[in-house]
């Protein structure tokens, strides 16, 4: 007897619906003519036009993207170094402590991270005069502190799966340690670095709580703007902006997928 497939398919459909219907609704309502987000009156692209004239929202979006990109890059560098230390040096002094401290931000409430960093920045400003004021720099530093932990977890998993004899073979064939790392290790963990970067980028773009603590006047990130405007009633411009972000992210993921597949075939 053939197994009935509809129960499984239904479950799958529900799963996808749960994940993507809200986003779909958001996209549909971005083309709504009405000023009210929840009432459909007709098709229009006027909110996109208004969005392009809304300097405050655009500035915030640009700031967020810049912070996210710088954060992701720094987090990948630091997180990879930390993962290396944990995987490659099995017993250095204080290894357990290092591991604990590295992963602590994963479970630490954002409120605490935000508050403690704010206190630190204030104290530093008073004693050494840096950072002078809060804004791009402080938000980026704050984001790196927690997103590098996520990167470290991702890279560590990949590194510990890697066959050590590959590096030994390269060394045996005459490659010095730095060359081994650049020609063998890095290419092999590249997928993990890439997903780590994307993860860190998303985490930063997403963050409201920590950024609220360490941001200064004149440095408002996108989530902060959206959050404060929601309290006064959402403008459909937000929908338009979100639709653009979704489109950009989808495009990026598709391009990355194509590049990776092509890279595999060429080799």
């Amino acid at each position: 007897m053939r197994r009935r497939r509809w129960p499984l398919l239904t479950l799958l459909a529900f799963g996808y619906a749960f994940l993507y219907v809200p986003i779909l609704l958001l996209i549909i309502y971005s083309f709504n003519e009405s000023r009210l987000v929840t009432v459909w009156t007709g098709f229009s692209t006027k909110w996109y036009g208004e969005l392009l004239r809304n300097r405050q929202l655009l500035d915030a979006a640009w700031l967020s993207v810049r912070i996210a990109a710088v954060n992701a890059t720094l987090a990948v560098v630091l997180g990879t170094l930390a993962a290396n230390a944990l995987v490659r040096h099995r017993n250095f002094r204080g290894r357990t402590g290092f591991e604990l401290l590295l992963t602590a931000p994963l479970v630490m409430p954002d409120v605490i991270i935000g508050l403690s960093l704010l206190l630190l920045f204030v104290a530093m400003q008073q004693t050494i005069g840096w950072p002078g004021g809060r804004g791009f720099t402080t938000i980026t530093i704050a984001h790196v502190t927690f997103s590098m932990a996520y990167v470290a977890v991702v890279v560590r998993a990949r590194l510990s799966q890697m066959d050590r004899s590959l590096e030994e073979a390269a060394m045996d064939l005459g490659a010095r340690p730095l060359r081994v790392y650049l020609t063998i290790t890095l290419p092999l963990i590249a997928p993990a670095l890439f997903s780590g970067w994307l993860l860190a980028f998303t985490l930063s773009l997403d963050d409201l709580v920590i950024a609220s603590f360490v941001a200064g006047p004149g440095s408002t990130t996108l989530p902060m703007v959206i959050y404060s405007s929601v309290r006064m009633g959402v403008s459909p411009q937000i929908n338009a902006l979100a639709t653009i972000i979704v489109a950009v992210v989808t495009l990026a993921v598709v391009i990355a997928g194509i590049l990776m597949r092509r890279g595999r075939e060429v080799r």
Partner: peptide, 22 residues
């Protein structure tokens, strides 16, 4: 003398072929 300067080569049990190279 470190491995990369020795006049010796080794064939590994797992073969250790670099998977990202032809």
């Amino acid at each position: 003398v470190p491995a990369y300067s020795r006049p010796v080569n080794m064939m590994f049990q797992s073969y250790a072929l670099f998977p990202h190279m032809s």
